[in-house]
Design a binder for these strands. Structure first.
Length: 345
DNA sequence: CCGCAGGGCCGCCAGT
DNA sequence: CCACTGGCGGCCCTGC
C-alpha cells in the first residue's frame, strides 16, 4: 500500500461497471441533522447536471434521511425538506454521505447510531459509498475504512485517527478513491470527488462539461495541505503570481528557481518562502503539478505519443513523465488515456 | 547498482 | 522590540 495516496490516485476499478446506457444511475444522498447546505448542493449540481451528448440525464439524485422523510435541520438555521427515507438506499448505485454538525455518536464516539446502522444495512452490495468532509466518520464507524487510506476535513484528521487507529488517515489530499469506497476532504472537496466519479463513469468529456457549466476547474491539484495555512493574502502585496504566469508560458522548458526568483526581483530564499506561503506547496512541487495537469489534458484530448507529450510538458523524457504520473495519479499514461480519452461509447 | 554533481528545500541566523 | 530579508549549510532527490 502506498504510504501517501495522492488525489484521485486509484485507477478505475474493473468491478465498477458504468450504469446501463438508458437507465440513469441512482445516487442517494444520505443526510443527518446539522448538515451543511453547501455540501448538499454539490452532488445535486455535479451528478444532477451530467448529461449524455444528446442531453439525457446520466444520474438520478435522491435525498434521504436514515429515519424516513422529514424536515432535517441544517447548520445554517433553516431546514431541508427531505423527501425520502432509507428505502431508496436499496436501489442506489452510489451513496453520498455529507458532513453533519452537532453531537453525534459517529463523530463523538466512533460508533453508528442505530438509525444510521439500519439505513446503511440496506445499501446494495457493490454500491459505492462516498463521503464528503466529516461524512468519513460515518464510513469509519461502519468499519468500511479499516485498513484503507481515507481522508476527511484537515481540522478533524487527528480526531478520526484517534477514533479509528486502523484507518490510514491521509490529511493532505483532496480525495481518496478505493474503488467502491471514496472519501473527500473538507466541504468543497466534495466537488472534486463527485467530478472524479463522473469522470470515472463517463470520461473526461462529460466531466469537463459539468465542470465548465458549474464554473469549477475540471481537476484541482495540490491537496488540502494548501488550505491548512493561510490562503491567498491580500492583493497588491509582493507576490509570485507573475513568476507563475511566466512559468506556465514556458512550461516545456527547464525552469530554474533562480530564474523564477529573478522575475520577481527576489532572492531565491525569499521567493521559495513566499511561494510556499501563497501556494501551500514548494515551487518544485507546483511545477510538477502543472506539468501533470498539462499531461492529463494532452492525454485526454490528443493522440500525441508519450514522448512528444513529455517534450511539450517539460518532463523532458517519457521515463520522467511516467514516473511522475505514477506518483501523482497511480496510473501509466496509456492506462490514463484508455480510461479518460473521450470516445463515442 | 553505485557514486557523483547539481538543484531544490528549509531551518537557522545575522543584518536591515 | 518587531517584521522581513537573504545567505549558509545540511539534507534530499534526480539525472548521468
Amino acid at each position: 500500500l502506498p504510504a501517501r495516496l495522492p488525489h484521485a490516485a486509484e485507477a478505475p476499478s474493473a468491478t465498477q461497471a458504468p450504469p446501463a446506457a438508458d437507465a440513469p444511475h441512482t445516487v442517494a444522498v444520505l443526510v443527518h441533522d446539522g448538515l451543511i447546505p453547501f455540501e448538499l448542493g454539490i452532488p445535486f449540481r455535479i451528478f444532477g447536471t451530467a448529461r449524455t451528448s444528446d442531453g439525457r440525464p446520466l444520474y438520478e439524485v435522491l435525498l434521504c434521511a436514515p429515519d424516513g422523510p422529514r424536515p432535517v435541520p441544517t447548520d445554517a438555521g433553516f431546514t431541508v425538506d427531505v423527501p425520502h427515507g432509507p428505502e431508496v438506499l436499496e436501489r442506489a448505485g452510489t451513496v453520498v454521505i455529507p458532513a453533519a454538525h452537532g453531537a453525534r455518536p459517529e463523530f463523538d464516539e466512533g460508533r453508528l447510531s442505530p438509525a444510521t446502522a439500519a439505513a446503511l444495512a440496506r445499501v446494495r452490495p457493490g454500491a459505492r459509498l462516498v463521503s464528503i468532509c466529516t461524512g468519513a466518520f460515518f464510513l469509519a464507524a461502519a468499519g468500511l475504512l479499516d485498513g484503507l487510506p481515507a481522508t476527511t476535513h484537515w481540522a478533524h484528521a487527528d480526531h478520526l485517527r484517534r477514533l479509528h487507529p486502523d484507518v490510514l488517515v491521509q490529511p493532505d489530499v483532496l480525495c481518496v478513491d478505493n474503488g467502491s469506497v471514496l472519501t473527500s476532504a473538507g466541504v468543497a472537496a466534495g466537488l472534486d470527488v463527485c467530478l472524479h466519479l463522473v469522470r470515472r463513469d463517463h470520461g473526461a468529456a462529460v466531466a469537463n462539461d459539468v465542470a465548465r457549466r458549474t464554473v469549477v476547474p475540471p481537476h484541482r491539484e495540490g491537496g488540502q495541505a494548501q488550505f491548512i495555512r493561510r490562503p491567498v493574502p491580500a492583493g497588491g502585496l509582493p507576490s509570485t503570481a507573475a513568476a507563475r504566469a511566466w512559468a506556465l508560458d514556458r512550461l516545456d522548458r527547464p525552469l530554474a528557481l533562480r530564474e523564477l526568483a529573478a522575475r520577481e526581483s527576489m532572492s531565491v530564499r525569499t521567493f521559495t518562502r513566499r511561494f510556499r506561503e501563497e501556494m501551500g506547496v514548494s515551487p518544485g512541487q507546483w511545477l510538477t503539478q502543472q506539468r501533470v495537469e498539462r499531461t492529463r489534458h494532452l492525454l485526454e484530448t490528443t493522440d500525441l505519443t508519450v514522448d512528444r507529450i513529455a517534450e511539450l510538458t517539460g518532463f523532458g523524457t517519457a521515463a520522467s513523465l511516467r514516473q511522475r504520473l505514477r506518483e501523482t495519479l497511480g496510473v501509466s499514461p496509456s492506462a490514463y488515456r484508455r480510461t479518460f480519452r473521450f470516445t463515442k461509447n
